[in-house]
Nucleic acid binder design. Structure first.
Lengths: 203, 203
DNA sequence: TGACATTTCGACCGAACGTTCGTATAGAAC
DNA sequence: GTTCTATACGAACGTTCGGTCGAAATGTCA
């Protein structure tokens, strides 16, 4: 159990790194094996198919995201502070040197959105969970009085996720050094609007 | 001149459609040729290499974007109305049936962000231009009095582009039917904040 | 030491990839 | 009618793809 599990970890570790740069489709069994000093067939024995490998890469990436972002952020007290902590951990995650190509989920999202299959289903389900967690965090902030009572928590989750996508785009494609400044400014505007006692509410 | 140019148009037309679903990397010369009833070599004669093909696909997609979004939007009078027109055309563009996989530039952005080369350079330059156009539109709105004088136009451009990315993600991966409602609500919040005489301004 | 399961390897497969080359078929120009 | 050029084709190149299979190595435990 131990031997194979270790190798499997090593494989997934490198696979996440590669998928971050080249995407799940660009992730190749031959390249992955040679980078690890393994034979193609030796590596392949750990996963039944390429789709399985992709799925396991996604699973592993999500697990790391939860360890690096969600769990630490949820140790902060409920309310605005937890939301801030979440953003901080999230931005740190997106620049983790173990992810040379940025967040795997974001890269995979654009790639898988038109490819039916288990990887797509898994990713969509997990992204849904993430949005739900963001909304729940916002709802807590309403409950403890940090945010106004009529706040649309799901809308805030959408807004928050959007500016994170904007940060990713700005940083990775445009290589804009002001990306972090921009996402933080957007976040402050979001929070300020959520705090206000009574504000805009259009349908 | 006429004959070849027509074929070339036909090729790019289908290529944009395919790249929209499968990405620029997933776009394959063999598949593209057989879908058009052409031979691989016959098609290949129109482009010197695959990188050239990708570049031309991007060029063609950008040209269509400018025809379908930028130019019509800029016919609206300067100010908030032009910004609204821009959003409307933009959302229509993202659901154009000719783009079964959504906006080509958004899909390519996630794909090319770590792949050096002419396609990446071209896309990044064009995205920069787009951001600049958004900022300029916002500046016009300040000049004509629609928006407050101390508005950070480039920040608004970032915010606007972010919620469009959020819309894409929400619609394409999550298939959330409320995606359009969400992006419009976010837009209204953005505009409301830009209108206010004096508001938040954090650094 | 011997038996046994796990783990890795090397050789190989058919298919698809991007690309090259020589050639056939048009229509326009002379 | 002949030349010339643009346009497309078919066959093949070398490489890489995901995937299979049987044998060799590497443990683990009596």
């Amino acid at each position: 159990m131990t031997r194979g599990a270790e190798t499997r970890e090593r494989i997934l570790d490198r696979a996440i790194s590669l998928a971050s740069r080249d995407g799940l489709g660009g992730l190749t069994i031959g390249t992955l094996a040679s980078e690890l000093g393994l034979s193609k067939s030796g590596l392949f024995a750990h996963f039944g198919s390429k789709e399985d490998l992709q799925l396991e890469v996604l699973r592993a990436a999500v697990a790391r995201f939860e360890d690096a972002v969600m769990r630490p952020a949820f140790r902060a007290p409920r309310g605005e502070r937890r939301l801030r902590s979440l953003l901080d951990h999230w931005l740190r995650w997106a620049t983790d040197p173990a992810l040379p190509g940025g967040c795997v989920m974001v890269a995979a999202a654009a790639e898988l959105d038109d490819q039916e299959g288990r990887p797509r289903d898994f990713l969509a389900a997990k992204q849904h969970e993430l949005l739900e967690s963001l909304a729940r965090t916002a709802r807590f902030a309403v409950e403890c009085g940090d945010f106004r009572a009529d706040l649309d928590a799901e809308q805030l989750a959408f807004d928050l996720y959007s500016i994170f996508l904007g940060y990713n785009h700005s940083k990775r494609l445009l290589r804009d050094p002001r990306a972090e400044k921009r996402v933080r400014a957007a976040f402050e505007r979001l929070v300020a609007d959520a705090r206000a006692a009574k504000a805009s509410a259009k349908a």
